[in-house]
């Protein structure tokens, strides 16, 4: 119970421990704790932001999906229309082509007939002249009777 040198010894010990704690214990512990606090704060903020981003992305995805569906429907519609149009056009073209071919064929036939007629006429004329020559036994002056022959040929 006496006051002795122990008092001074205890004071020195106290200051030594305080110094040790001040230099080697407190700063690293507090640094680590502050770092962790910062990390947690950052993590929470990031989570908050991620949550918002997610919501935004979901909304955007829904919008995109709806837009895509609408667009697909439009495209299909357009394609259907175009297909029927093409079919109609093809039908029309085929029809026209058929008509054209028919007309051309008719024209050719007519031409063929005419040419055959012409030929026939010429042959008939020649035959007529030859017959007449034989009948008259004279040479028909081609010049003199040309008109007659032509008249005959035209009659045939």
């Amino acid at each position: 119970m006496n006051i002795t040198m122990t008092l001074i010894g205890q004071s020195i010990t106290f200051l030594a421990f305080v110094w040790f704690c001040w230099k080697f214990v407190w700063p690293p512990l507090l640094t680590v704790m502050r770092e962790r606090e910062q990390k947690i704060a950052d993590g929470l903020r990031d989570a908050e932001r991620a949550h918002k981003d997610l919501q935004l992305a979901q909304r955007k995805a829904t919008d995109e999906l709806i837009a895509a569906k609408t667009k697909a429907a439009e495209i299909i519609d357009g394609a259907n229309k175009r297909a029927s149009q093409i079919v109609d056009e093809a039908k029309q073209a085929a029809h026209d082509e058929g008509d054209r071919l028919k007309i051309a064929a008719k024209a050719e036939i007519q031409q063929e007939v005419n040419r055959a007629k012409e030929q026939l006429r010429k042959r008939v004329a020649a035959l007529s002249v030859a017959g007449a020559e034989k009948i008259l036994a004279v040479n028909i002056d081609a010049k003199a009777h040309n008109d007659l022959i032509h008249k005959l040929a035209a009659e045939l």
Binding site: T6, L7, I8, Q10, S11
Partner: peptide, 18 residues
């Protein structure tokens, strides 16, 4: 128990005083 010795407690108090 060091804190039942007045030397210890007063020693620490002295250090705080300094």
């Amino acid at each position: 128990v060091p804190t039942t010795d007045p030397n210890a407690t007063l020693g620490m108090a002295l250090a705080v005083f300094i």
